[in-house]
Amino acid sequence: MSVVPTRLAQSLGWFAQVWRSLRRSRQGTIGLVIVIVHMFIAVASPYIVPYAHHDIDGKNRLAAPSADHPFGTDSFGRDLFTRVLLGGRAAIGVALLAAAIAVLWGGLLGILLAFIGGRVDEVVMRLVDALLAIPGLLVVLLIVVALGTGFSVLILTLGYAYGVSTVRVARGAALSFVASDFITAARARGERKTNIVLRELIPNLLDVLLVEYVMRASWALTAISSLSYLGFGIAPPTPDWGRMVFENQVMLAVSPWGTLFPVFALASLIIGINLAGDALSKAIGLDRSQEAPT
């Protein structure tokens, strides 16, 4: 059917528009380039790294960068270049999935609450506010301590924690549309409620949700790295930036490379996402200054 191609063309057109406005801002372009480089490395690193992440070069421990080991080695003699390139994969994967889950359930719930309104909205929002009063990272830590640090536990708990604040954002954005005449017109026309939400409401909220997704992903990345640093996140032997910082920081005075390179990798990615995210929200006319990470 031709519905699919036209829909696709429309959403492509929308993305193209967002893309163009992103490119128009210098910061947005820089952020985007950083993010793209990181994503490329995350996907391609298994094929380009010179060693396996657990290979040990016993003769070169805590070595400074050299031709054999461009970033040097850690206290076991493992190649830091290999480990830094591979070290983002798990965290990025978890963050992207967690943010997707958060925006999916939080966004949908928020939109539905705005649409339904009344008592249901009131009660659920009280609950959301109560949940928001507890710091998100604390909740995640508690759950992870209780249930262990499997990937799925991490993804689900982060997805839950960030979803709660997404409910608020999505509801707020949806409320400004719920009372508008085109929704009233759809109601008067006899449109089914699911249709009103899917066809009339959600298309107007895609941009807000996209920004929300980007920002949640950045926060989730920070959170997951902090957790790994503390030992509750991505477990060894999987290489991970946060964990690497923890493992190598004792040797900071002797050999700073094992700490510096993962920190640089993590920081550059988070800065990149934030630059792109800010430009994105500016491009679609949102002010993110009031939002704060949880």
């Binding site: 508008s180 005449d181 085109f182 017109a185 008067a188 026309r189 009339e200 107007n204 895609l206």
Partner: peptide, 20 residues
């Protein structure tokens, strides 16, 4: 009945979905 009664609003900016 939905079909037989239709509304046209004051401000078409508000009554037409900007994304459609």
């Amino acid at each position: 009945m939905h079909r037989k009664i239709q509304i046209i609003f004051q401000n078409p900016d508000a009554s037409l979905n900007p994304r459609h």
